[in-house]
Amino acid sequence: MLYKALHASGQSRNYVIQDLALPYATAEEFINYTADSFKIWPLWLCPLRQTRLPTLHPHNPEMEADGKTLKPMLNVGLWGFGPSQRDAFVAKNRELEHKLRDLGGMKWHYAHTYYEENEFWKMFDRKWYDGLRKKYHAESLPSVWHKVKVDPEDAKKADNSSWGKWALQFWPIGGIWGLRKSIESREYMIARNSTWKSKKGSGEGR
């Protein structure tokens, strides 16, 4: 229900949803940067075992002492409100991407991605990826970069595509609209009517 309200309100367009993986050696510096620049708390911290290369998952080439095992990374979840103005929001995300790259980190692909195509493929093995596309006859489909990138100009046009979407940018209009749409969806009834809940007098679930 809250998820429905967030998206219906239009506030998700100004919401930072980033999962970022870094080497342990630079994680503290990155967290200090996010604290100063974004002021979003709390953060989600989770140890991350690296996927064997080649991969489209976050990775770093640092090895353990055995020279065979990739060192673990730390996943940092940065979730909270960013700048409300579209250009400032994009600039902040680009700043985050640059800082992440400087510290040897990478982001997960479901996060907002603003990399230019050449920037994106510097992080991944494109020859390997294109080989997979050819092997599975997927060359006519959009590449992973096309699927995950955010076009700032398209996003700005979407914000102003109608007076209604434009108005949602202003509080409390967006919040009231989001609450209304979430109630109308009746998604709260899903949990209320869950079959796993015991029925009154049936003795189920005991």
Rank of each mutant, 00 (worst) to 15 (best):
R86E: 14
E119C: 08
H109G: 11
L96Y: 04
P42C: 05
V150T: 12
E28Q: 14
P61M: 06
E29P: 00
T51L: 10
L2K: 01
S143N: 13
D66K: 04
E204W: 08
F30H: 02
E95K: 05
S143D: 15
L48Q: 04
E28T: 13
G175L: 07
P23I: 10
E28V: 10
G174T: 02
Y129P: 03
T195A: 15
F170E: 01
A88K: 09
R52D: 10
S143R: 07
D125M: 09
W41C: 03
G80W: 14
Y15N: 01
G203S: 05
E28S: 13
L56I: 15
W108K: 01
P152G: 05
N14R: 12
A158G: 01
S140N: 10
K200Y: 13
L96G: 00
S37P: 00
K147L: 15
G164N: 01
E204K: 10
L100G: 02
L22P: 02
K156H: 13
G203R: 05
N14W: 08
W121Q: 07
L132G: 02
V148R: 02
L70A: 13
A138F: 13
A191H: 08
A25L: 11
F38A: 04
A155K: 04
D87S: 12
N60F: 10
E28R: 10
N14D: 15
S182M: 14
R133L: 15
Q50G: 08
R180A: 10
R133A: 07
D151C: 10
G203A: 07
I176A: 12
V90A: 04
E62M: 09
S161K: 10
V90C: 02
E187M: 11
G67Y: 12
L179H: 01
G82P: 06
S194L: 13
D154F: 11
L179F: 11
L56C: 05
A21G: 01
L103G: 02
L43K: 06
M1R: 00
G131P: 09
S12F: 14
